[in-house]
Amino acid sequence: MTGTVQVPKPMLSRMLYANPVCLLTTTSAPTPATILPPANEPAQPSLTETNVMTISWLTPVDNNGHFIASMNKGRYSAELLLSRIHGLDYSNAFFTLSVPVHGSEKLVVDVGSCSGRTTKDKLNTLGIKTCLPGWKSFETPTATEDTSTADRGPKRSRKKEDFADEAFSRKHRLLAVSESVAHLICRVEEIQERHGHWILHCVIGAAFCKSEYWNGKNFAPIRHPVTGVTPPPYLTFLGTKVFAAAAPFEAVEAEEGREKKEEE
Rank of each mutant, 00 (worst) to 15 (best):
A43K: 14
V5N: 01
P8D: 00
E41T: 14
A18H: 11
P8R: 03
W57R: 10
I55S: 03
P38D: 13
A18V: 09
I55A: 01
T50F: 08
I35R: 09
M11E: 15
L47Y: 13
I55P: 03
T50L: 15
V61M: 05
M11I: 14
Q6W: 08
T27M: 03
V61L: 02
Q6N: 07
E49F: 15
T27W: 05
I55K: 00
N19A: 15
P42F: 13
S46L: 07
V5Q: 06
L12G: 02
N19S: 13
T25Q: 09
S13N: 00
P60D: 08
S13V: 01
Q6I: 06
T26R: 00
P60K: 11
V21E: 03
A33E: 15
S56C: 02
P42S: 12
K9R: 15
T26L: 02
P10V: 04
E49W: 12
V7S: 02
A43D: 10
A39D: 13
M53C: 10
V21K: 01
V61Y: 01
E49G: 06
P42M: 09
G65T: 01
R14H: 09
T26F: 04
V52G: 05
P60E: 11
P30H: 07
P8I: 04
S56G: 09
N63K: 03
L16S: 05
N64Q: 08
A33H: 06
P20K: 02
A39E: 13
V7N: 03
P38K: 15
N40K: 14
S56R: 01
P32H: 03
A39V: 11
D62I: 02
Y17A: 10
N63V: 02
S56D: 07
P32D: 05
N64T: 05
A39H: 12
V61S: 04
P45L: 11
P10I: 01
T34E: 09
T48R: 12
T48Y: 07
V21D: 00
T27Q: 12
V7H: 03
P8K: 04
T50K: 13
P32E: 03
K9A: 12
T31P: 04
T27E: 06
N51K: 08
I35H: 06
